[in-house]
Nucleic acid binder design. Structure first.
Lengths: 117, 117
DNA sequence: GCTTTTGTGTACTAGTTAGTATACAGTATA
DNA sequence: TATACTGTATACTAACTAGTACACAAAAGC
């Protein structure tokens, strides 16, 4: 399994290949956390960071925030808010997605995005 | 605003009108928590309970679990799992729901439920 | 009129979260 | 060869979560 730390480390090291600004220390500094902490995170020695810190990390490494949050077992709080506003309705919709193939979900996404309602 | 505690208290007292088994003490006993705790929860003196305890409460009061969780600022962990499995895709869909009216979401729900894919 | 039941006040707590702060040895660099 | 930068080991912690345990006075039930 590709863990949170594993994913972050690979991404950072890949960026570092052609840019020395992506050392643990420099990334940690830009994020505003201790390098020792980021090191532990990358080696999965501690649990993934908070949503806020994960967002900073996603921005820093230029990866999809939702994907990184997912790897950390979390769901973005703005999505949670959408659900909480109409729980009965939205919950049923999401449960329905469970057994749908990707392409069908994608069709739904397009339908919604194109405002077909 | 109707808070978690407020909602629970009203629901329990309503049930109690024609059934004395819905006293704080008895409900708490069936749920496996201290009556003093349930009392504090109902008066919003403490934060809403954990997801597990909220589920028990929803079952006990016969209310929609998703709705009760929403009132407690949480999202059911099984919904979170659906999102985490395909974060990029599902996240976009959910964000799209934000500006849709209820009836349009309902149409989507039906579409998904009827397996139109 | 007594005992049972009720809601609540007060005091306490184990476990978790999300990190910080410092020190140290290895590597690159100038 | 000095010095600057690297990743990491170790030790610590404030705040929060999700409650428990017990005591008490009022009300209800028989």
């Amino acid at each position: 399994m590709v863990t949170f730390g594993c994913f972050v480390r690979e991404r950072r090291e890949s960026l570092r290949e052609d840019n020395p600004a992506y050392s643990i220390r420099r990334v940690a500094k830009r994020m505003g956390v201790q390098p020792s902490y980021l090191s532990k995170v990358e080696r999965d020695e501690v649990a993934p960071p908070s949503e806020e810190t994960t967002r900073k990390l996603a921005a820093e490494l230029n990866v999809d925030t939702d994907v990184l949050l997912a790897l950390s077992g979390k769901v973005s709080s703005d999505l949670q808010e959408v659900i909480r506003k109409r729980p009965a309705l939205v919950a049923e919709l999401i449960r329905g997605l469970k057994e749908m193939p990707d392409h069908a979900v994608l069709r739904l996404v397009r339908e919604v995005r194109d405002g077909e309602w």
